[in-house]
Design a protein around this nucleic acid. Structure first.
Lengths: 260, 260
DNA sequence: ACCTCCAAAGTTGGATATAAAATCTAAATT
DNA sequence: AATTTAGATTTTATATCCAACTTTGGAGGT
């Protein structure tokens, strides 16, 4: 465990600005449709305009705001269809990640995930909702990080970036979290995921992850007032991954250095 | 057809810079691992550093380059595992998009897609590969645009942004495209998609789209030298979408204006 | 009244210059 | 040999100025 090179913990200003704006958006102080004027933001945060513009472009990429040339940047408005699609994507991709994670997860990662699960259990009151959300985010993040599939990790990080905005800007999340039985269901579903991962069972891990996200999605859409279909149980078919399920090639391919 | 407001076709410099860098990356002039120094780029393109930095941040978001604070930005290296995951994600999300598209596609969109398909047919020589790739990109893009699902459109646009880089930096794409029978297969699979869309059959559209991407993915991974599994045929299970398959709510939800 | 054109105001977009911070390289010291 | 220090390089941030574009609100004509 050599400290190595301290991993450069230095944050850039643009990141800080983006973080603060993200919080303002997801807490509703910046409402969907509202314009974000760069000069005002720079003044309010005590920075110059360049980091503000970089932060805005980053948020655009994350899908939280949209940019119109020479007009400005404003918070996006999400639709119910967007939330459906978000959950469908998560359902699939997080399922895949869980499958891969089960095959390569370390004991330490397993302990951390189980620990996060434990800490979520007592969070069943409205006041503990923020803490629950944070723990939940870390729980899911830890799982797909454990998959070691950088592409999936990146994709899921993007999905999760857009996720809270949708909720806070569209619906009082409490309605979802306090839905009858949701606490218990969430806990049971998380438990199932942890169990499958502990058993190093890819098939079960994928199934459990899908079942959880599917159930959560249905509950959320119900809370939103959308009529949820009977919904086909998340099919437990074989992996859709296209090739070898074996050890993944660790390094990148030798890209044609010279054209002999 | 009033010109309306000209739709502000004005591109920002940052976009142009990003476009040029993207081309350089995907054509291999900028190799994976290579550092992109902002001053050099600004000088080379005759612009100041601000648009360069915005462009770099955009490319970071697209996943083509990675940024390390106070160190710089460099082209990412993709692994075979990344390509597997990319195709798996495309398989699923483009399938969903095709399903939605079949339900709402217009005659005009249908004509354009069919036209693109026709124009791809004669492109069966190595020299026409660039044209084929461009037509293919427009073909797929037109389909998921027709779905009207903004979230899926955005997600797929991101996937397609990373896509060419992987190929050019990892493998001579010709090996894929000129694989025995691939031309004919691609054509037949595209044909099936067009047919399903024309029939406004969501189920068939999803199945056809999946089959195509699955086949293309297997062919590519074979060309890459990866041992492709027997691979389960893309399962034609019901939609995984979580709620109403009916007309999508057009506008955003009324986000709690007041908490009565 | 109604439409068109034109100028004003305001915001974003971009260039340039300059300074500060962080990282890397390599020589110099212990 | 290991550590420290000094310098070079590059990124990061600020400030200021001007150009480009959109919108707004009237002036003038029909």
């Amino acid at each position: 465990m050599t400290p190595r090179s301290a991993r450069s913990a230095h944050k850039q200003l643009a990141h800080l600005v983006a973080d603060r704006l993200r919080v303002e958006i997801l807490e509703g102080r910046l409402k969907p449709g509202e314009w974000l004027r760069q000069e005002r933001i720079a003044l309010a945060q005590g920075v110059s305009q360049m980091p503000v513009r970089e932060a805005l472009r980053q948020l655009v990429a994350e899908g939280l705001v949209e940019h119109i040339p020479y007009r400005g940047t404003r918070v996006v408005e999400f639709t119910v269809a967007d939330i459906e699609d978000l959950y469908a994507c998560r359902l699939f991709i997080e399922g895949m990640a869980a499958r891969h994670a089960a095959a390569v997860i370390t004991d330490e990662e397993l302990r951390e995930i189980a620990g996060l699960h434990e800490r979520m259990l007592p969070c069943d009151t409205p006041e503990s909702l923020p803490e629950y959300r944070e723990l939940n985010r870390r729980f899911h993040t830890a799982i797909f990080q454990a998959s070691r599939r950088s592409f999936l990790i990146r994709s899921l990080a993007q999905l999760w970036a857009a996720f809270p905005t949708m909720l806070w800007s569209n619906v009082p999340l409490v309605a979802y979290r306090t839905a009858p039985g949701r606490d218990a269901s969430d806990a049971a579903e998380h438990e199932a995921i942890v169990t499958a991962l502990s058993a190093r069972d890819p098939e079960a891990a994928e199934t459990a992850a899908r079942a959880h996200i599917s159930a959560a999605g249905r509950a959320l859409l119900t809370a939103l007032g959308a009529a949820p279909h009977p919904l086909p149980e998340a099919p437990s078919f074989q992996s859709l991954s296209l090739a070898t399920g074996g050890r993944h090639r660790s390094r990148s391919f030798p890209h044609a250095e010279e054209e002999s």
